[in-house]
Write a protein that binds this DNA or RNA. Structure first.
Lengths: 351, 351
DNA sequence: GTGAAAGCGCTAACAT
DNA sequence: ATGTTAGCGCTTTCAC
């Protein structure tokens, strides 16, 4: 175990350098308006003492934390099983680094954690929050709101109370779904099935809506609920083949679901795409390119979504000038507004 | 974007309840030694104002943060591609929740991030740190040490300067590897190959040592370096088949590596386990059970490792009584010491 | 049992 | 350009 070194304070550095605390503070924070010889003396003292500013003390007065919370409303197991989050975090991470902000990841796998997360956000540990994977009944938007923490959502939140003015970044789920289904129809398929995502999330609902936009009056047995996991895809596919052995195409709500469906199709001797054409959603490379056959899917730029979320958050932070974020943006009009990113069809072998 | 509510302070609550700040503080922190009617009044005021303590202010005086940093020295893409981390985090998460501590995840994908992580740790945001996936040249142990933050490592750290007294939790990598290789030998295999992990990490080195313990004087061409990823496993397996077409068994440094190796073996028409027997390491269920054929492997209880790391950290925190951790443990003798967990062979179809 | 007051370590006016 | 000083919001002696 590491030793307990009693950390030196500003005071100590000042004493050592023979200057006032204010001067040390100035040097530590960029050294503006301090003459060279003094800067040098202070720097040396800092070095010798191994001084590092106490952030709690600093935040107390500046109201800044240089940290942003990323809240993911899923249990660890799902978060880490789905490459989706990795990509999104990557985008966020890049943007935060550019703003010299720390990324603080909070996973909230269940009701019990919510209180803790709420306390953390309200406790003033972070300048803002990026919240993902919201479910319809989720209290998180409320919590963030009441905590007074500027928040940007990943994916359109379901309409909760205080969510009307929420800023979010989303993909054009409905439009992408329409493209996927039109592609299948264009291939001459008439019995197109849909395995939905977890319908507690707007992305799943939107994709279902897109499916329906094209397949009006579809046989309801051709729609089965999944949950965005491979296992869910397998289950749904089996059910589908049982109920509608004559289906000739499947639109799966995401690539993971499609991969499960493909396994079942192969196991039951259906050839893809000859007998059944399959289209996924996400274009998660490690999944879509590894399936057999490789997956035709709807691409969304997930990393960019993450980057954009962080970027919107910083824009908001600058506007409100919270704490010392006083290099406020030009700030004409209201805060930043939501963004919906386009999707594109990526054709591989499965459809 | 959420609105900016000016957060109420202790002072405000005190005024509203008609008591002193001290009393409010007492109530907020458990209400010991305050009479019932007052407690009630204060509670109501807290409720009405939506008061939440400012953690920066609190930490400034208590020196406690009720938060623990988990530092993973890998880029996001790897962290999220490897179920290993998910499991470990799960164990940690459980233990932290039990201690009502927040988990703050810091990913450090490159040299550039190290400074930021170091500053974060030294800045006094957390009570302790749990550090993973260390590489030999990693400056992280040094940083944590100098930051004066109690730290527990996941996996034996390579011997850096200040690492002599490091506390860590590890699996018996060497012993497990021996078991794996002995199992293969017991199956009558004579040409046993080894695909190593990333040799910059002690776990990979220890497993290689275990392999060598059993296969003394092994043909050096039977050892190929991998990197703990499926792609690395594929690459290594191809090289192995080219150099030693007569090999009849493979011990892969982890399950992910084994899965890559299996793909190549199948593609090249080798039957597993008839022609080539394969053993992995980790017993990562989503991987080991899904391969074709299911993988014989060495199980380590990863979740338990995580739980244990957190548990050791808390024990250390209690001992040092840092800040108000004054319910110090019985504290006889030195701090907690490292733990090495046993492994077990899990037999499936591949060997 | 309750309140008054002294800081925790830092930044930001304000003086000089 | 540098120093002095007043807090930031909270906990914690110490009196009452």
């Amino acid at each position: 175990m590491t030793e307990t070194a009693p950390r030196p304070t500003l005071e100590a550095v000042a004493a050592r350098a023979g200057v006032s605390r204010a001067t040390v503070s100035r040097v530590v924070n960029g050294g503006q308006g301090v003459r060279e010889p003094l800067v040098e003396r202070v720097r040396r003292a800092v070095e010798e003492l191994g001084y590092v500013p106490n952030q709690a003390a600093r935040s107390l007065v500046t109201k800044r934390h240089d940290a942003v919370a990323v809240v993911i409303a899923e249990p660890e197991t799902r978060v880490f099983a789905d490459p989706f989050f990795a990509l999104q975090l990557r985008g966020i991470s890049k943007e935060l680094t550019a703003h010299d902000s720390q990324l603080v990841l909070l996973l909230t796998g269940g009701r019990a954690d919510h209180a803790r997360v709420g306390r953390y956000l309200a406790g003033g540990h972070v300048d803002g929050a990026l919240v993902f994977s919201l479910h319809f009944d989720d209290p998180l938007p409320e919590l963030a709101q009441r905590a007074g923490v500027p928040t940007v959502f990943g994916g359109r939140p379901g309409w909760g109370e205080g969510t009307r003015s929420a800023v979010y970044v989303d993909s054009d789920n409905r439009g992408g779904a329409r493209d996927a289904v039109r592609h299948l129809v264009g291939l001459g398929r008439g019995r197109v099935a849909h395995i939905t995502g977890a319908l507690g999330q707007t992305s799943a609902v939107d994709r279902l809506d897109g499916f329906r936009d094209v397949m009006v009056d579809v046989d309801p047995r051709l729609i089965v609920e999944g949950d965005f996991t491979p296992a869910g895809g397998e289950r749904a596919m089996r059910l589908l083949l049982e109920r509608c052995p004559d289906l000739d195409a499947v639109f799966a709500a995401n690539d993971l679901t499609a991969s499960g469906a493909l396994r079942v199709l192969r196991a039951q001797g259906r050839r893809v795409p000859e007998d059944v054409a399959v289209v996924g959603f996400d274009d998660m490379l490690p999944v879509a390119e590894q399936t057999d056959p490789p997956l035709t899917t709807i691409r969304q730029d997930i990393e960019e979504m993450g980057r954009l979320m962080a970027s919107l958050l910083f824009r908001a932070l600058e506007r409100r000038g919270g704490g010392s974020y006083r290099d406020a943006g030009s700030g004409v009009g209201g805060g930043p507004s939501s963004v919906v990113l386009p999707t594109t069809l990526v054709r591989r072998a499965s459809a």
